[in-house]
Design a protein around this nucleic acid. Sequence first.
RNA 1: GGGCCAGUAGCUCAGCUGGAUAGAGCACCUCCCUUCUAAGGAGGCGGUCAAAGGUUCGAAUCCUUUCUGGCUCACCA
Length: 593
Amino acid sequence: MRVVDNIIRNVVRAIEALYSQELPIQQIQIQKTKKEFEGDLTLVVFPLLKVTKKSPEQSAEEIGNWLIDNAEITDSYNVVKGFLNLSIKDEVWLAQFNVWAKNENFGKSASSTGKTFMVEYSSPNTNKPLHLGHLRNNFLGYSVAEILKANGHEVYKTQIINDRGIHICKSMLAWQIFGNNETPESTEMKGDHLIGKYYVAFDKEYKKQIAALVKDGMDSKDAEREAQIFKDAQAMLLKWEARDPDVYALWETMNAWVYEGFETTYKEMGVDFDKLYYESNTYILGKDLVEKGLADNNFYKKEDGSVWCDLSDHKMDDKLLLRADGTSVYMTQDLGTAIERYKDYPNLSGLIYTVGNEQNHHFNVLFTILNKLGYSWAEGCYHLSYGMVDLPTGRMKSREGTVVDADDLMKSVIEDAKKITQERGHLDGLSDSIKNDLYKTIGLGGLKYYLLKVDPKKGMQFNPAESVDLNGNTGPFIQYTYARIQSILRKVGTFAKVAEIDLLLEPAEKTLLKDLSEFPSAIEEAGKSYSPAIIANYTYELVKNYNSFYQSLSIIKEEDANKKAFRIAISYKVGTVIKLSMKLLGVDVPDRM
RNA sequence: GGGCCAGUAGCUCAGCUGGAUAGAGCACCUCCCUUCUAAGGAGGCGGUCAAAGGUUCGAAUCCUUUCUGGCUCACCA
C-alpha cells in the first residue's frame, strides 16, 4: 500500500477511536510537508475541527499521539498551527522502495483497463511542409498516446490527411505553369518542400493578378474572385472531383512526393501512426447522415434547399451541414469521419482529437451534434486543444515568411547539440555513428521537452534565435543526469536492486524516496488530464533532487557497504524512472553524453 | 456585440479539486572540479499572483465586476 493511503487509513481510525466519528477518506487532507518544516507528510487539521470540537493545535496533538501509539509507520510528529507534520519511519520507506525495485514497470498501471482509445494527431495539409506548430501537435499527440498506454489502455494512433481541396489544386496548378517538370529528384528537394514552393508561387501570381485587376478599377473583393489563376484552380478542383484522368494522375504524383517528404519528417520526429485516413476518401462521408438527421427532425431544410442543425438550446448559432447545391462542408465530413471510425473500431472508449485551440468551437459543435443524433459514444470524444506556438515577434505568418519549418528546426537543433557536445561531452572512444545518434538524441530531446513541458492548453513562446536551452529545466539536463547514473552503474558492474531495510536515511535519500512514491500518481494524473507537462514537471523535480543527492553524498565511494548498496540501488531506480517517463514524452536518453 | 481561454519575478513557466512565509529555470552576483560526468551543486538578488469587491478560520486558487491579450461566432478546411 502507498504510504499516503496508509496514513489516510490510520487517520480515519484515529478519528473513530478518539471522537467516535466515521469520516469518509475524501475528507482527509494529506500533503507533502514543506521543506522548512520537519516531517514527511502533513495532515491538514482544519477540516476536521467540526468533528474534534477542539482547537486545531489540540486536535493535531491528539491525532499525532494516537498515530504514534497505534500506527506502525510514524515515529514522530510536530504541530505547527493547524498542521500535523508526521515523520515516516525509515524502514517503511525502505520496504516501499524494495517493492518498487522488483517492478521494472514501476509507475505504469499494473493491469489493463480493457479500454481502447484512438488518438488523432498531425493531420496535415498536403500542400506545404510541416512547421513548428505541427511539431507541438505531433509531440503532444504521440506523448498522450504513450501516456494512455502507460495507464493500461490500448491506443490506436491515427491521422487524417487533408489531401484534397482547393489548396492542393493551387500547388498543382502553379507547378504546371512554372514547374518545368521539376521533381524531387531533379531538384534534390524534399517532396513536401517542393510542393510548398509551388504553393507560394501560386500565391505570388495570384496577388499579382489581383493587383492588376484592381489597377484596372475592379473592387478588391471581386478581383479575388475574378483572378484567372484562381478560377483555373477552382476549375481544376471540379475536374478532380469528376476524376479527370490527367488531373487525377498529377494529384497522385504530387501527393506521393509529399508523403515521401512527410515520412522522412515523421521518422526524424520519432512519431508514427497505426491507421491513416485520407480526406479524399472521407469527404463524401456524412451525406447519408444528413438524411437521417432530417428524418429524425434533428436537422431542418431551408427554402433554398440547404440543411442546418438548430443548436439554439445549446446557445450556439445554427450550423450549416449541406449547401443549397448539395455539397457538404467541413463539419459534415467530420461527422461522417467520426461515425466511420466507430464503425472501424466499435469498441472505442474514446476518440481524442489533437487539434489547435482555434478549433475549439468547431469541436464543441461537432460533439454536440453527435450527441443530438443519439450516438452515445460522443461522450467519449475529446478535443485535445492546445495553444499556438508564437515567436517573440508574434504569430507565425506564412505571408511574412516567419514560419519556422519543422525540418530546418530539427536540423539546427541537432547541429547545436553537436557543437555543445563536442565542447564538453565525454565521447572518447565512441564511433561516429554513435556520436551522430547522440547529437540527435540530445537535440531532439531538448526540442521535444521544450514543447511538452508547458501545459498544452496554454499558448507558448518559442525563440528560435536562442534555439533550445541546455541548462535548467530542459531535456538535456534530464538526459545528463541519466548519463551520470549510467556512468556510475558501469563503474559498479553488478549490484543489488533492493536495499537493506535497517538503514538510517539521509534527508537527500528520503527526498528521492518520496519523489519516487509519486511516480504512479503522476502517470495517472497525466492520463486523466491528457497532459505530458505533468510528466515533464515530475521528472524535472526528481532529477533536481537526484543531482542534489549526487552532489552531497558519496555513492560508489561510500565506505559503509549497506549505504553504498542502497545508493547504487536508488540511483538505478531513479535512472529507470527517468528513462520511462522520458519515453512517455517520446524523448530518448543516452548512456553517456 | 455573443461565447471560450488566458493574465503569477526583467524573460520562459510551475502551483489552481481553497491551506503554512507563492516556487523553478533563464538572466545578474558569490562560492564549489587533486573527489562517482561542473550540460552539475550551494547561496544571493528579484512578487501588490492584472485591478477592485465578495465568500471563508484561511484565497494565486472559488464568485462578481472591470481592464488587457488570444481564439472563435464562414455556404474556408
